[in-house]
Design a binder for these strands. Structure first.
Lengths: 110, 110
DNA sequence: GGCCATACCTAGCCATCCTACCTATTGCCT
DNA sequence: AGGCAATAGGTAGGATGGCTAGGTATGGCC
């Protein structure tokens, strides 16, 4: 069945996460909330996409994680960008611009 | 292995094809060429992505195909948008704008 | 003849995403 | 005290979709 697609993001999740973590170390749940908020609710990251993506990024050494106590007194896994992650973010941004511009040109056509 | 990603597009192929065929009935090979050209070579559609995508769109009744002789005297399978396809195109465009705007907001953040 | 561009196709791999679950804690409301 | 929502983390399994790499065939040009 063709699925809803009303929510989501395809292939751009890494970009969104890396860009969001760039703003400062943050735990997973907060990353998803921030993406939703900053995108003015246009983007919604389901948890079933979020956590696997974080693990992938960590495995690729683009993020590193540390368990920390948040200000609410709770434990959370806080992610921060590695140097490699920062480079990857730049690449992802460039790729996105290229894709986005390319599609823009196609859609501009009357 | 993390793959190259330098070429391509994800989930947006249907949109690109539908939009391109909207300009007028066209055969598969020409669709790929036109996408490449109109996008100013930012986008490249490999044949191994193109033809399966066309078949999917045809199966979903978003495109209909007919074998025809081209001006070069060769047989080619010419695709045209169905009414359903036109509606799907509008939806895809709206989805793209939403995604694109959402990511735009995230990337704007300093 | 040989080669390139055109034109179509498929198998099989791989990555990613999502739905649907599960666990646990904190704080609020009744 | 009980219940519930929000917070915070996670996994399994299926589905989709793109790509590489292969294949077929024709027309035009050198």
């Amino acid at each position: 069945m063709a699925q809803d697609k009303s929510d989501l993001l395809q292939g751009t999740l890494d970009l969104l996460i890396l860009k969001t973590v760039e703003a400062g170390p943050m735990h997973g749940y907060a990353i998803a909330q921030r993406i939703n908020h900053v995108s003015r609710a246009l983007l919604l990251v389901p948890q079933g996409s979020l956590y696997p993506a974080l693990h992938r990024l960590e495995n690729r050494d683009l993020l590193e994680a540390e368990w920390m106590a948040t200000d609410t007194g709770r434990e959370a896994k806080v992610y921060r960008l590695t140097r490699k992650g920062r480079r990857a973010l730049e690449r992802e941004i460039a790729d996105w611009r290229r894709l986005s511009d390319g599609i823009g040109f196609v859609l501009e056509r009357p």
